[in-house]
Simulated scan of single mutants.
Amino acid sequence: MSRRTFTRLFKQETACSFVEWRQKACLMSALPQLAEGHSVTSIALNLGYENPASFTSMFKRLLGAAPTDYRVQR
């Protein structure tokens, strides 16, 4: 299957791009870890982000708050 075909079929089946889906999956994995008290750095690296800043940027963009704020508030 070509990349273009995969991209088109993935979007048809999930109603979002692979990048959007991956980000949502990362958030679903990160939220319980934050609730358990894991560090943002360890979560970001375990999810495959190159650094905590890129993870934090994605987290803020999708949820409107920094991961550390989320852990403190909830």
Rank of each mutant, 00 (worst) to 15 (best):
1 M>K: 04
3 R>C: 05
3 R>M: 08
3 R>Y: 06
4 R>Y: 10
4 R>I: 06
5 T>L: 11
6 F>R: 10
6 F>N: 08
7 T>S: 14
7 T>P: 00
8 R>S: 05
8 R>E: 07
8 R>L: 07
8 R>A: 09
9 L>G: 02
9 L>N: 04
9 L>Q: 04
10 F>T: 01
11 K>S: 03
11 K>V: 03
11 K>W: 00
12 Q>S: 11
13 E>R: 13
13 E>W: 08
15 A>F: 03
15 A>L: 09
15 A>C: 03
15 A>V: 08
15 A>K: 12
15 A>D: 11
16 C>I: 06
16 C>D: 03
17 S>R: 05
18 F>T: 09
18 F>N: 11
19 V>R: 15
19 V>W: 06
19 V>L: 12
19 V>A: 13
21 W>F: 14
22 R>S: 05
23 Q>Y: 07
23 Q>P: 01
23 Q>M: 10
23 Q>K: 11
23 Q>G: 03
24 K>A: 08
25 A>H: 05
26 C>D: 10
27 L>N: 01
27 L>H: 00
27 L>F: 01
27 L>P: 00
27 L>W: 02
27 L>C: 00
27 L>K: 00
28 M>G: 11
28 M>P: 02
28 M>A: 12
29 S>C: 10
29 S>H: 12
29 S>Q: 15
30 A>G: 05
30 A>E: 02
30 A>F: 03
31 L>D: 01
31 L>T: 06
32 P>S: 05
32 P>D: 00
34 L>Q: 04
35 A>M: 10
35 A>W: 08
36 E>G: 03
37 G>W: 09
37 G>Y: 07
37 G>K: 07
38 H>M: 13
38 H>K: 15
38 H>Q: 15
38 H>N: 13
39 S>K: 13
39 S>G: 12
41 T>Y: 10
41 T>F: 04
42 S>M: 11
42 S>N: 14
42 S>I: 13
43 I>M: 03
43 I>W: 01
44 A>R: 05
44 A>D: 11
44 A>C: 11
45 L>K: 14
45 L>F: 13
48 G>F: 08
48 G>L: 05
48 G>H: 12
48 G>Q: 06
49 Y>I: 07
49 Y>Q: 08
49 Y>V: 08
49 Y>T: 09
50 E>P: 07
50 E>C: 14
50 E>A: 15
51 N>K: 15
51 N>S: 15
51 N>A: 14
51 N>D: 15
51 N>G: 10
52 P>L: 10
53 A>W: 13
53 A>V: 15
54 S>L: 09
54 S>H: 15
54 S>R: 12
55 F>P: 01
55 F>M: 01
58 M>C: 11
58 M>A: 13
58 M>F: 07
60 K>E: 06
61 R>S: 06
62 L>C: 05
62 L>T: 03
63 L>W: 03
63 L>H: 01
64 G>Q: 02
65 A>E: 14
65 A>I: 14
67 P>M: 00
67 P>W: 01
68 T>R: 10
69 D>Q: 13
69 D>K: 14
69 D>G: 06
70 Y>N: 01
70 Y>C: 04
71 R>Y: 04
71 R>A: 10
72 V>N: 09
72 V>C: 05
73 Q>K: 14
73 Q>F: 08
74 R>W: 07
74 R>Y: 06
